[in-house]
Write a protein that binds this DNA or RNA. Structure first.
Lengths: 335, 335
DNA sequence: AACCAGATTGGCAGCGCTGCCAAAAGACGA
DNA sequence: TCGTCTTTTGGCAGCGCTGCCAATCTGGTT
């Protein structure tokens, strides 16, 4: 037969139908294994598909199908530089790949306006669901999400009201638990070292919970160093050096996350500051390296992969719900 | 007017046209700012869009448009657990977001069969381009990519022949440069510590280049430790402990990447092994923490973000080409 | 041989949009 | 005022597929 297609034109379902000597609907049924068809039809279609190299066009399929929503999910995350978000995606893609649903991603750079623009752009692909990060969004984003007629899942943070489904943990509670831990261990001259809070709202919530816990014990934060830019070990190292220069009397430092804490640990090693004897360090996230350190980092392990998985699981259900996956305080050896 | 839509039905371009008292084509032209239209038409459409909360349906738009290819790119990466790939995506999304093109991603888990399945799945969305990782693929993947009628870009590795465009650096050359560096520094009893090479082919190429460089100097690898599973600081720490137990005489270790090297460094700190006096360490990737360590890690910085950016830039052009972005050896203080 | 329920099949409208083309509306000079 | 050129506009086919419905076929039954 003539396998030769006019170049530039891709093989369509109609081509397959013709090649298989069947109707389009039969081919469609066979390909989706939906409805009934004979064994003979199945074989002929398989043969024609293989011979012509047919790749279905889901653009057309989704457009024609029920509800016109695509087997895609839109995901807006604030960053790819912080391990948290790739981990989230990891849990998500692992769960979704099993169903053959890919993610369309947008990176907002922590900018609510970009988030709104990305949400609109992603919704224009008519995804089955829209996944956002955190609970704080522009009114426009919320309106879009509600009007989009799709399932909306907000990931990571449970401290507040969500649009639809919410999967995460309480950042405030993490901060509080961390604060109580330091207080219980007898630390009294406590400092905080973080990256930009106006940008990373969840770090701000942790800090609020942390300060509240100190307050319960009649304490207050002795010093606070906020570094511009994203979190990183380098930022943590530089930040801790500055913090110690200004407040040499600190006996513990709470970091906005493990990356910052690693930098802080390196600063201590370099300066010969005994950890935790002279200075205790406490992180957040429970990354792999925290456990590999000569003294395992005291930190809080967050269920990042599980958040992604549960978010994927939410897509099938409906109705608002909040899943709090909790967290685990790792005592470690640095605080 | 009746802003009320029958629930469940989303606003369409036809609705906007009716609400604005214009024809569909005029509305389409206004929305895409393509072709000419009057100021009055522009205003009326803007008003109707805002009032009805219209979100265009790109599924339909792409299907109807020229060439029927969507303003999407499909990306298949092997993992999200290794920073390299999020960094790649970071460069990519930064460049593509500017054009309003989102990425549809698939994670293959280093499995060529999954890669093929994902490539097929992504191609079914008729993306403007398909981005793959590395140069080694199933024959089926290559056939799909060629037949898909889309631009194909293979990222990261330039050691071999590509399908279409290739953006990356020579992993073999990285390994060779690393080997020559260690030899030049006078190390002679050199070991290798890596994660699964059968899975991470590029790590294997680096090792091959490394061994070749040792060979040039009349040396051979003294010991090799391959850890199962993905790379991580924990794996690096455990691996180095094993390696040193078996070969206490090693004077340098080449790691498959910085994560492994960090774990190795921690092992040295914990065991009181002087670095680099007693044991030199050499990594790969040039991650942020490498520079923040008390002794900056000797490693090779790879242009991960730039690869993503250049890959995005490739999408507009056509014709096969290879862009070698090179790498930078960072002397550091550990080797 | 006529009949029937169930399995299998094909035709065709239509998903929401764009591209093409022709019609309508302005702009301008004679 | 009229004709001509340009700008603006709307109608409609059709992108590739799915869902619906009616047509056809199958294998018993009577």
């Amino acid at each position: 037969m003539d396998d030769i297609q006019p170049p530039g034109r891709l093989v369509t379902l109609t081509d397959v139908a013709r090649a298989a000597g069947l109707g389009e609907s039969t081919v469609s049924r066979v390909l989706r294994n939906h409805g009934s068809y004979s064994k003979r039809a199945g074989e002929r279609v398989a043969e024609a598909v293989a011979r012509l190299g047919y790749v279905p066009n889901r653009l057309a399929g989704s457009l024609a199908g029920q509800g016109a929503s695509a087997r895609l999910v839109g995901v807006v995350i604030p960053s790819l530089a912080n391990v948290v978000f790739p981990d989230l995606l990891r849990g998500l893609t692992a769960a979704l790949d099993a169903e053959g649903i890919p993610c369309v991603i947008g990176v907002s750079d922590y900018d609510p306006d970009r988030e709104e623009a990305l949400a609109a752009a992603l919704l224009s692909w008519r995804p089955a669901a829209l996944l956002l990060t955190g609970l704080e969004h522009n009114p426009g984003t919320v309106a879009l999400a509600r009007a989009g007629g799709v399932r909306v899942v907000e990931m990571i943070d449970t401290d507040g009201a969500g649009i639809d489904a919410v999967v995460g943990f309480s950042n405030r509670a993490v901060g509080a638990a961390s604060g109580r831990h330091l207080v219980a261990r007898g630390y009294r001259r406590i400092g905080y070292l973080g990256h930009d809070l106006a940008v990373d709202l969840r770090a701000g919530k942790r800090l609020a919970g942390f300060e509240a816990a100190l307050g319960e014990a009649g304490l207050a934060l002795r010093a606070k160093e906020i570094r511009p830019g994203p979190s990183s070990p380098t930022s943590g190292r530089v930040g801790l050096e500055k913090l110690l220069a200004r407040h040499p009397d600190l006996d513990a430092v709470y970091f906005s996350n493990d990356d910052m804490a690693l930098g802080g640990y390196f600063a201590c090693l370099a300066a010969g500051v005994a950890v935790p004897g002279r200075l205790a360090l406490f992180g957040f996230n429970g990354l792999d390296f925290a456990a590999a350190m000569p003294q395992p980092l005291s930190t809080v392990r967050t269920p990042r992969l599980e958040i992604g998985r549960q978010a994927a699981a939410c897509l099938t259900g409906d109705g608002p719900k909040t899943i709090d996956l909790g967290f685990e305080l790792i005592e470690g050896a640095t605080a």
